[in-house]
Amino acid sequence: MNEPVHITDAEFDEKVLKSSLPVIVDFWAPWCGPCRMVAPILDKIAKEMGDKVMVAKVNTDENVEWASKYGVRGIPTMLFMYNGEVVHSQVGALPEPMLRDVVNKLLEAVPSES
């Protein structure tokens, strides 16, 4: 996968919680400026690191169930998940170098697949 995957509420369990790769879940909406700022960075991360991490995008305009379960009250919110657990959450847009740092640190903490 070298591009972000759009996930609906119905697909969340199967595609995100049961993913074998770590997942960055980006809760976003079309009207949100900071989300537009993050989107191209996540596109790049998906393209460059698609074998190590999945970028999942959840449009909160159409999918409220999981956003609400995770207590999302502001977008963008990015949840970094592994084995169905949230290991880190980032609220608000980050500049590209800082976002990449967060992603790299999380990947270091995840055991590589044997």
């Binding site: 949100c32 400026g33 999302v72 502001g74 977008i75």
Partner: peptide
Amino acid sequence: LLGKGVSYCATCDAAFF
């Protein structure tokens, strides 16, 4: 509480309320 109810962008987050 940023992102947990504190916001600086109503256009982004109003729908959650």
